[in-house]
């Protein structure tokens, strides 16, 4: 554990909390992509299957449980409790176009061809692109509430901080995982346009509105 890794995890945790607070306080999931949230739930479940096979640390176990539980809580709020506020019409991204290629890629490029390893790799590839339905929704509606922007910023920062963690680990421990690094770089790149808008608009007190 190094400072970048810890900051990344805390940023990830903050993102999830912000999202739950937004939905709970406003009693609405308007502007949030249910498709992205489904993909994140798939990511956590397929990645954290090792919860039942390997014990790494209490921190590791607790965080995994928090991520899985909170993603299902989010889905429950969106698809059951506040279903009426869910923006069906704008959330039209076809997630099979992400799920299938990621699965095929995981079958082809992985560290070892075992069920757990393929699913872990699948989750890494899927996480890299899971935010696309959300970014698509923001681009369709042309704007995002400020708390949704904070959520996206925290979520994007998390993998960017992991990239610093991997650079640090490469030099400090000689450890690197090309699959995670490659996917993490793609994931971070997808947020760049959003990061730019967040810094130039939201941090200056303006609403995130895309140029027409």
């Amino acid at each position: 554990m190094n400072i970048f890794r810890l900051a990344g995890d805390l940023s990830h945790l903050l993102a999830i909390i912000l999202l739950l607070i937004k939905i709970w306080k406003t009693r609405s999931c308007a502007g949030i992509s249910g498709k992205s949230q489904i993909l994140f739930a798939v990511v956590y479940v397929s990645r954290y299957l090792d919860l039942v096979t390997t014990f790494i640390s209490l921190y590791n176990t607790l965080m995994k449980l928090v991520f899985i539980t909170s993603s299902f809580a989010t889905l429950y709020l969106m698809y059951v409790k506040f279903k009426a506020t869910y923006d069906h019409n704008h959330d039209s991204f076809r997630i099979e176009f992400l799920l299938l290629p990621c699965f095929v890629l995981a079958l082809l490029i992985n560290a070892s061809f075992t069920p757990l390893e393929v699913l872990w790799t699948f989750s890494i590839y899927l996480e890299a692109v899971a935010i696309l339905p959300q970014l698509f929704l923001v681009s369709k509606t042309g704007e995002a509430e400020s708390i949704t922007s904070h959520y996206l910023f925290a979520l994007g920062s998390y993998r960017a901080l992991y990239l610093l963690n991997w650079i640090y680990r490469y030099y400090a421990e000689g450890h690197y995982d090309l699959i995670a690094i490659f996917a993490g770089a793609i994931q971070t790149i997808l947020y760049c346009d959003f990061f730019y808008l967040y810094i130039t608009k939201v941090l200056k007190g303006k609403k995130l509105q895309l140029p027409a």
Binding site: I56, N60, E117
Partner: peptide
């Protein structure tokens, strides 16, 4: 996986 290092990450 031979290198378990990435599995302690989330």
């Amino acid at each position: 996986k031979e290198d378990e290092g990435s599995k302690d990450e989330l």
